[in-house]
Design a protein around this nucleic acid. Structure first.
Lengths: 170, 170
DNA sequence: TCGACTCGCTTGCAATTAGCAAGTCACAGT
DNA sequence: ACTGTGACTTGCTAATTGCAAGCGAGTCGA
């Protein structure tokens, strides 16, 4: 399981997608965040086929974002919980939720409200800069090859920049 | 195209996933953010089959996150650009990138650095609260049905809470 | 003790989606 | 006329998903 092709790429977006990009994976995570832990809870909430659910859960456990925890010995029964690594995926879901609320919600409003306990209010996620704390806006962000970039990635980056400059000029 | 089953759900995470959840979709977006605009640039950068790429692009255009723009009349040539709606998906990618850098990067460091022009430094995304500006941490967030929740969603939410309380007690 | 039920799965099989290689079409340049 | 470019299709195979049914180990109720 997991999308091997993505896992091999040297890209910090593609690698998480090797397991998050499978259909249902992010919805399973959503449910785990909402406190659903057991197979049948998840299945009925999601409406997913049980074989697919068991595959997804196995992958999530494999990737270390969830763990399978026995809550009963006789009979043996298991539930799934997020690990720290899994909980750190919350920003991904919050970002998607914020976008979904903005662009796909019905007139009545969003179906789920997220509340920030520190201030007590329903919020949406705002992405900010770890360095200066300012809000991140696409106009004021740019990418460049990092220390782990391959030669090929650098080459491609330079070429792309050259081409875009050319187009700009024309 | 697009995952019909997800589009119909009353959930602000599931609905974006109706097109973002298809394999390659988020990587196509990543490339569009990096300034790649033309079919062959995208194809060679991604290493995706051309039929799949053209399907994905069509879906993104359909959903209004990208637009097909003619840059030459003779011969007719097209490129793809993000719309405002598409650029607003950047937090999703930044969140994934931050997680990927943290958990999947090689010892040399991340392959891509994102720089915040306002402060000039490489950053990672930090999710903050739109209401108080504080950093969002899973421990201090909770969800609850919003104004657009269906009766069934409310019922399910209450039942889940009841069950979790029970388990806590035991 | 018998039958019904619950939970957490598998199995088998059909339908959908993704991937690969090759081809197409309209031009452009030489 | 001949090669090349850009943006795709087409045809076909492989992989993934979805559906329905079943299973095994136990629990519960009569």
């Amino acid at each position: 399981m997991a999308i091997e092709a993505f896992a091999k790429l040297n890209c910090s977006v593609a690698r998480p997608l090797s397991f998050l990009g499978e259909r249902w994976a992010l919805l399973v995570l959503r449910d785990l965040f909402l406190g659903r832990r057991r197979f049948d809870e998840l299945q009925e909430s999601l409406g997913v086929a049980s074989n697919v659910l068991s595959q997804r859960l196995a992958t999530l456990v494999d990737e270390g974002v969830a763990e399978r925890h026995r809550y009963s010995e006789h009979p043996e029964r298991f539930e799934y919980r997020l690990t720290e690594k899994g909980r750190d995926l919350q920003p991904v879901l919050l970002a998607m939720l914020a976008w979904g609320d903005r662009y796909t919600a019905r007139p009545e409003g969003p179906p789920l409200e997220t509340v920030h306990d520190d201030c007590g209010k329903p919020f949406h996620m705002v992405p900010t800069c770890s360095e200066c704390g300012g809000e991140l806006n696409w106009r004021h962000i740019h990418g460049r090859p990092g220390p782990g970039a391959t030669e090929e990635q650098r080459r491609r980056f330079d070429e792309q920049r050259r081409r875009n400059a050319e187009r700009q000029a024309a």
